[in-house]
C-alpha cells in the first residue's frame, strides 16, 4: 500500500533528519514507528503527505509516487490520507461538527451532506452528542476523537498519526488506541503511527519499525520481533521482570516463551526449577509469556 524507499530529508540548516529510510506499510495493518526524540519520526510521517519536502527518495501510495506530485494531484492524494496530531490542531473558531466538516468543505461536498457525514463520524468516535461544542469545551481525549473524526471525513485509505496520544493520560490513551484499532478493523484503514512509547506499539500495532538517527534499523511484525534474539525492539517490548538472588548451585534466567509456554514451564518445574515471576500478554498475534526461572545448575528450560 505505502512504500517508502531511500527517503532522505536534509533541512536547510544542514540537519540530516532522514538518512535513507526504507519502510513498507501493508494495506490494512497498523504500523508503528518508534524511536528516541529527534530521530526523525515526525519528519518521516510529514514527508508522507508532503507537509515536509523530501530531499531524495520515493514514497509510493498504491503505485503512485507522492514525491513527484504537485498541485491538484497532491491535494487529491492528501484527501486520501488522513492525519491526526499530538496537539489535535482543531480550529477554535469552529464547533466539533464544523471541524469534522472542514475536509468535506474542501472536497466540495454540499452543506446538508456535510452535516450528515459530520454527525455520523462523531457518532463513530463516540461523540454523537457533542457536535455543537467548541474545542475549548472538550477534554483532551474528546478533542483527539474529533481529530480522528476529521481525519476520517474524506474516507481516506491511510491514516497518519504523529504522537496522537502523547498529550493524553494513560486511560485516555488506551481508549483512543482502542478506537484506532476499531476503525482499522471496521473500515479496513491502514495506519502509520509514530510514537516514542513502547506501550503504544504493544497496544495498537501489527508491525513495528525502529528508527535511529534517520534510518530504520529494525522492523517486522510484533509477534516475530519479540522472538528475535538480541533485538532492541524485543527488549523494549518485553521489559525485564526484575532480578532474583540465587545460591551458587542455582542459575537464574529470564525466558520468553510462546504458545507452548505452559508445557515448557511445567516440564521445567518437573525437572526441579522454580518460577520466581511470570507474566503473559498478547503481543501482536502471539501470546507471549515471560518467566524468571531459577534452576539447579544442570536443568535448562
Amino acid at each position: 500500500m505505502l512504500e517508502i524507499s531511500g527517503l532522505r530529508k536534509v533541512f536547510p540548516n544542514g540537519v540530516v533528519a532522514l538518512d535513507g529510510v526504507d519502510l513498507s506499510v501493508p494495506a490494512g495493518e497498523i504500523v508503528g514507528v518508534i524511536g528516541r526524540s529527534g530521530t526523525g519520526k515526525s519528519t518521516l510521517i510529514r514527508c508522507v503527505n508532503r507537509l515536509e519536502e523530501p530531499t531524495a527518495g520515493t514514497i509510493t501510495l498504491d503505485g503512485a509516487d507522492i514525491t513527484r506530485m504537485g498541485g491538484a494531484e497532491l491535494r487529491a492524494t492528501r484527501r486520501r490520507i488522513g492525519m491526526i496530531f499530538q496537539q489535535f490542531n482543531l480550529l477554535t473558531s469552529r464547533t466539533a461538527a464544523e471541524n469534522v466538516a472542514l475536509p468535506l468543505e474542501i472536497a466540495g461536498v454540499g452543506r446538508a451532506e456535510r452535516g450528515r457525514r459530520a454527525h455520523e463520524l462523531l457518532e463513530l468516535v463516540g461523540l454523537g452528542d457533542r457536535g455543537g461544542s467548541y474545542p475549548s469545551q472538550l477534554s483532551g481525549g474528546q478533542k483527539q476523537r474529533v481529530g480522528i473524526a476529521r481525519a476520517l471525513a474524506s474516507e481516506p485509505s491511510l491514516l497518519l498519526s504523529d504522537e496522537a496520544t502523547s498529550a493524553l493520560d494513560a486511560e485516555t490513551t488506551t481508549s483512543v488506541l482502542d478506537l484506532l484499532r476499531r476503525i482499522n478493523a471496521e473500515l479496513g484503514l491502514t495506519v502509520l503511527l509514530i510514537t516514542h512509547e513502547m506501550d503504544v506499539v504493544r497496544a495498537a500495532c501489527d508491525r513495528v519499525a525502529l528508527l535511529d538517527a534517520g534510518r530504520v534499523v529494525e522492523e517486522g511484525p510484533l509477534g516475530e520481533v519479540v522472538a528475535r534474539p538480541g533485538s532492541r525492539l524485543a527488549s523494549g517490548l518485553l521489559p525485564s521482570l526484575g532480578r532474583v538472588e540465587v545460591g551458587g548451585h542455582e542459575h537464574a534466567e529470564e525466558v520468553v516463551l510462546f504458545e507452548d509456554a505452559e508445557e515448557r514451564l511445567a516440564a521445567a518445574i518437573a525437572d526441579g526449577a522454580r518460577i520466581e515471576a511470570r507474566s503473559t500478554e498478547r503481543i501482536g498475534e502471539r501470546r507471549v509469556t515471560r518467566a524468571l526461572v531459577v534452576t539447579p545448575k544442570e536443568v535448562a528450560v
Binding site: N49, L51, A76, R78, F85, N89, I106, R150
Partner: peptide, 18 residues
C-alpha cells in the same frame, strides 16, 4: 494562528486561498 492549524488544513487537501 498556530501553524499546526494551517498544516491540518493542508493535510486535508486545502488550497492556499482556503
Amino acid at each position: 494562528v498556530p501553524n499546526g492549524l494551517v498544516e491540518a488544513a493542508l493535510a486535508s487537501g486545502a488550497r492556499r486561498r482556503e
